[in-house]
């Protein structure tokens, strides 16, 4: 009912089904659905060259638009900026022809669950990594646009943030193509929707805020800047970044690298308890120190998991004994 914008939305592939390209003749076997977006559905597929992600839509226009972006990306690519593009084609189903493209399958964890599981210190580090990538994208004349946790994945170890949905990427100087309200400066009344680097940097600040407020929140009628700053001050994990967040929200950063530098300085001076852990993988990804930290985290998780059920059992036992004792007491009283 909500999809009346598109003419047909019937592209439904089932696991096991094989898609054959009409132009290039490549075969892809569907393994499972990975996700649904505004312009189409992404499937995990197996091909001759191994696993890949296949996005099929009904509108050749928007699919082609995304392919254009991915092609530009591959020209920008030094190392992993967005997924690489493998194939573009159409397939014919019973109800018509559907355009699709095949790209690299990026396996990873969503950002917010990752940060929740591993610790808030990761949010700053992931943001630093993200800002490095954004800088290269901006240098090439593109703005990411629809930057949000859902369009990012953490791959690894070594842990590295990567973007996998580049549908909203817009050429610098144009109007932003796609956006999500919480991460859009226009929504908060803090700027327009012309694609420039500061548009993306605003979204990075909002991703930081989102990682401390996973449920997000809505705008107020006015004075949203003070609302956002108030929220930032409420969480210790955010508070250390407050000056950086403020500058990003007010469009003071003209370049991703400026914000990245400020953020890195801040991560270094975090609360002393956190300092050791947070200081580890700032730039690049030094693999060695990351792995022990990871193992420890694993162990910690497992330990708490084991503790919880036994705690419940203990409580239940105590309660049972108390009840029994009380029953005996009553029994004795009646006798």
């Amino acid at each position: 009912m909500r999809d009346q914008v598109s003419k047909k939305q019937g592209c439904n592939l089932t696991p096991g089904e094989t898609v054959i390209g009409r132009w290039h003749g490549n075969r892809y076997r569907v393994i499972r659905e990975l996700g649904r977006g505004a312009t189409g559905t992404v499937y995990l597929v197996s091909s001759e060259k191994g696993q890949a992600a296949l996005k099929a839509g009904s509108d050749a226009m928007s699919i082609t638009s995304e392919v254009n972006v991915l092609q530009h990306f591959s020209k920008v690519q030094g190392e992993h900026l967005g997924p690489s593009l493998f194939d573009v084609d159409d397939f014919t189903a019973a109800d018509g022809t559907y355009p699709f493209y095949v790209m690299e399958y990026i396996e990873g964890e969503e950002v917010i669950p990752f940060v929740q599981k591993r610790g808030v210190e990761w949010s700053g580090i992931l943001a630093v990594q993200l800002l490095g990538d954004l800088d290269r994208l901006h240098q090439a004349g593109w703005i990411f646009g629809d930057l949000k946790p859902e369009n990012l994945l953490v791959t690894g170890p070594p842990y590295r943030v990567r973007w996998f949905d580049v549908g909203g990427t817009t050429r610098s100087g144009r109007a932003i193509k796609e956006f999500t309200e919480f991460f859009d400066r226009g929504y908060w009344g803090l700027g327009g929707r012309k694609a420039d680097p500061s548009y993306d940097l605003f979204a990075v600040a909002m991703i930081l805020i989102n990682s401390a407020f996973p449920a997000r929140f809505e705008r107020r009628e006015k004075d949203n800047l003070s609302l956002l700053l108030k929220k930032t001050a409420e969480r210790p994990a955010l508070k250390q970044f407050a000056p950086v967040i403020r500058r990003a929200l007010t469009g003071k950063y003209k370049e991703a690298m400026e914000m990245r530098k400020d953020l890195m300085d801040r991560i270094g001076t975090g609360s002393p308890r956190r300092e050791r852990k947070a200081a580890q993988p700032q730039t690049g990804v030094p693999a060695a120190p990351v792995i022990p930290a990871t193992r420890k985290a694993h162990r910690k998780v497992r330990k708490t998991l084991r503790k919880t059920p036994s705690g419940i059992v203990e409580t239940l036992l105590v309660a049972a004994f108390l009840l029994l004792g009380y029953g005996l007491y009553l029994f004795v009283q009646i006798m």
């Binding site: 050749a60 226009m61 082609t64 392919v67 254009n68 092609q71 573009v88 084609d89 159409d90 355009p99």
Partner: peptide
């Protein structure tokens, strides 16, 4: 658009 080879569509969309 659908009758063009995918490689050519890019330009039209631009």
């Amino acid at each position: 658009l659908e009758d063009l080879a995918p490689a050519k569509r890019g330009q039209v969309v631009e």
